[in-house]
Design a protein around this nucleic acid. Structure first.
Lengths: 154, 154
DNA sequence: AAAATAGTCTACTAATTCTGTCAAGTATTA
DNA sequence: TAATACTTGACAGAATTAGTAGACTATTTT
C-alpha cells in the first residue's frame, strides 16, 4: 500500500552519494552504480531528469561526474521526489493534472488531501544533510529528528 | 507519486456508505454502487475482502446488505486499507513479506520507515465517524481534527 | 590529433500490477 | 418458490514500472 517507485528510491540514494562528494568534486555514475547497486543505464535516466530540473550539475570529460547545485542542507527529499514523479497526489482527484470530478459529496477528498499535506511536509523538511548525518552516526540523528527523541535501536 | 489504488479509495467510500446506515439496517451493494459510482461487480470483490477480514458483516436475503461489525468510531481508515492491501510499506525493503537485502549501509531505510510510521499513525487515528462528521459539517470537523485548529476554507 | 573518459538522448520491451468484467453459482426470506 | 442478495473464481485489457540498448556528443589528457 502506498508504495514508492524504485525510481524514486534510487534517485534519493544516488543524490545521497552525490551529496557525500559535495566537497570533493564530481561523482561519476559508475561510482554511484557500484555503491548503490543500481544499473548505470537506469541511473543515467534518473540523473538526467534531476539535472534538467537543475538540482544537480554535470561535468563532462575525465574527472567529471555529477555535483549538487546547492549544499546538501538545502536540498530536501521532497524536492528530489517531486522532480522525479511530480507532486504528492495520493489520489487522482488531488492531481493538479486531473482534477476532482465528483467534487460534490466527495467525503474522502479532505481526508486524502490532509494526508498528502502531511507527507509532503515531512519530505520537504528532510534534507540530504540529514541523510548524511544519519549515516555517520548510525541513524541516531535521523531518528532524533524524525521521532523527536524516541530513539529506537535494533 | 505515492498513489493510493482505486480499490482502496472505493473501499473507504463504500465503508462510508455502510457506516452512514449503521443505525438504519443493512446497506446493499446496489445502493453503494449508485451513491459512490462504482460498479457492483467490483464492489462485490472489495466488500467480500472486508467481510472476510471481519470489519463488516453481510445479511442475505431480501432486505439484506452489509452492516458494520463495530460502531463507526471504532473503525479506522488504516484498518480498512490494511485489510485491502496489507500494511503501509513505502518501499519493498519495509514490506514484512520481502525484507531488506542491503541492510548494511541502507541510508534511506530509516527515512522511509519514519515516513511509513507517520502515515500509518495518521490513518489509524482517523475513523469512519470522522468522515461522517466531516460530511455533515462540510468538512470542518475533519479539518479541525487533522490540522489542529488551522482551519482552511475554500 | 587521438584516445579515453564521461555524460546525453531516444526508442524499445518485458514484466507486473491495476482495474475491472463475467458467469455460474449459493443462501435466505417473504 | 420467486425474489433478492451474496460468493467465488477465472479472465483480460490497459497502464505503469523498471529497466535495456545503442548511437551520439562533449571534454580532457597524452
Amino acid at each position: 500500500m502506498l508504495r514508492l517507485s524504485t525510481k524514486c528510491q534510487y534517485g534519493v540514494r544516488a543524490m545521497f552519494e552525490i551529496a557525500k562528494g559535495y566537497n570533493s568534486g564530481p561523482v561519476t555514475i559508475k561510482e554511484i552504480s557500484e555503491k548503490q547497486d543500481v544499473s548505470v543505464a537506469y541511473l543515467e535516466q534518473i540523473l538526467n531528469q534531476l539535472r534538467k530540473a537543475g538540482i544537480i550539475k554535470s561535468v563532462k570529460g575525465p574527472g567529471g561526474g555529477y555535483i549538487l547545485d546547492k549544499e546538501p542542507g538545502s536540498i530536501s527529499i521532497g524536492a528530489i521526489l517531486r522532480e522525479l514523479e511530480g507532486p504528492v497526489a495520493i489520489t487522482s482527484c488531488l492531481d493538479p493534472k486531473e482534477g476532482c470530478i465528483r467534487v460534490e459529496g466527495c467525503v474522502t477528498h479532505l481526508l486524502w488531501k490532509s494526508l498528502g499535506e502531511k507527507i509532503e511536509a515531512f519530505l520537504d523538511n528532510m534534507t540530504l544533510q540529514d541523510l548524511i548525518n544519519g549515516s555517520e552516526s548510525r541513524g541516531e540523528q535521523l531518528i532524533t529528528i524524525t521521532r523527536k527523541g524516541k530513539r529506537i535501536r535494533k
